[in-house]
């Protein structure tokens, strides 16, 4: 079933085009320049760019302002990520209404990593809502123009709602049922955590096909060997095949940083081509925080 499109991203998904989304991180700064620059690099290659909301519970600039700024200054649509970790339902509706006023078209509804994994582990975690109850709240706002207590909203905002999925979740069945709960409430698209092989993407897409919701497969090239090691060790559900790890290690040894970048382009370009040609993914969600320039090169290498 085609969902009503409120912005460019959903329009492109609905058209059946293989879409790309990017991701930018507002970091601990009062400066918009880096985010806007990142958006400009990605602009011609993606339908929209996610702006992360205190990712892995690090206290950064809020995601709404940069979401607005990349739309205004770089002319590229934002996917405003919102977690329920730091805001109760009152604070959430405040930001949702502000997002509507600022012309945001997409919200990615997330629970958010736990405060204890971030840079301020002493913080009181909120989790008044979870990603499912947040989707429920968003649907009421969008479809009925009402808040959770059925109070009317003047000029209710319209958003396309995205959710996240963990394609390598083990066990996978509860992950799928959890997504199903949210799909039944009404979500427009799914962006996954990163996969590291066409096989991983294929398996998840097959298992999730019954949900009949457009799925953008997440990819995340490695900025460095140390980043790869960290991800393998600490990020749940990340499975990097030995082959990839070896190739990158070898590249680092023989050609240093530049060779690692080139190996990334090769590996992920190939993976992207595989996902495009052998699965029914709606597109790719590409995460390359701090080296966004690599995304266009990977897309080019994939011949897309």
């Amino acid at each position: 079933m085609t969902k009503e499109a409120y912005g460019e991203l959903m329009k492109q998904i609905n058209s059946g085009k293989f879409v790309f989304t990017g991701e930018l991180e507002p970091v601990k700064t009062t400066n918009f320049d880096e985010v806007i620059e990142g958006a400009r690099i990605l602009k011609n290659h993606v339908a929209a760019i996610n702006i992360t909301d205190n990712p892995t519970a690090f206290g950064y600039m809020n995601a709404l302002m940069p979401s607005y700024m990349i739309q205004e200054k770089a002319g590229v649509e934002a996917v405003y990520q919102m977690t329920t970790r730091d805001r109760n339902r009152l604070a959430l509706i405040s930001d949702v209404l502000a997002a509507g006023a600022l012309g945001i078209k997409n919200i990615l509804a997330l629970t958010g990593d736990h405060t204890t994994v971030g840079d301020t582990p002493q913080a009181k975690p909120v989790f008044d809502l979870d990603s499912a109850t947040f989707v429920y709240m968003l649907r009421k706002i969008i479809d009925e123009g009402l808040d959770l207590n059925n109070n009317e909203i003047e000029n209710p905002p319209k958003f396309n709602i995205g959710i996240a999925a963990a394609p390598n979740a083990d066990p996978l069945e509860p992950e799928l049922l959890k997504i199903q709960r949210k799909v039944e409430l009404g979500v427009d698209f799914i962006q996954t955590q990163c996969v590291y092989s066409v096989e991983q993407a294929k398996n998840f897409l097959k298992a999730a096909s019954y949900l009949k919701t457009p799925i953008l497969i997440g990819i995340a090239p490695f900025k460095s060997i140390s980043m790869m090691k960290w991800m393998v060790k600490f990020v749940p559900g990340i499975r990097v095949p030995e082959e990839i790890q070896e190739t990158l290690h070898k590249a680092k040894k023989t050609g240093g940083k530049q060779a690692v970048y080139e190996a990334n382009i090769e590996i992920f370009g190939e993976m992207l081509r595989g996902v495009r040609s052998t699965t029914n993914a709606a597109g790719i969600h590409a995460m390359a925080i701090g080296f966004e320039w690599i995304i266009p090169k990977i897309i080019e290498r994939a011949g897309l």
């Binding site: 736990h114 204890t116 975690p125 989790f127 990603s131 979740a169 083990d170 509860p174 749940p236």
Partner: peptide, 14 residues
């Protein structure tokens, strides 16, 4: 840890 009413979240493995 997050007191979720509609879990699990992505923070579990095995």
């Amino acid at each position: 840890a997050k007191s979720l009413l509609n879990g699990p979240c992505g923070g579990q493995a095995n």
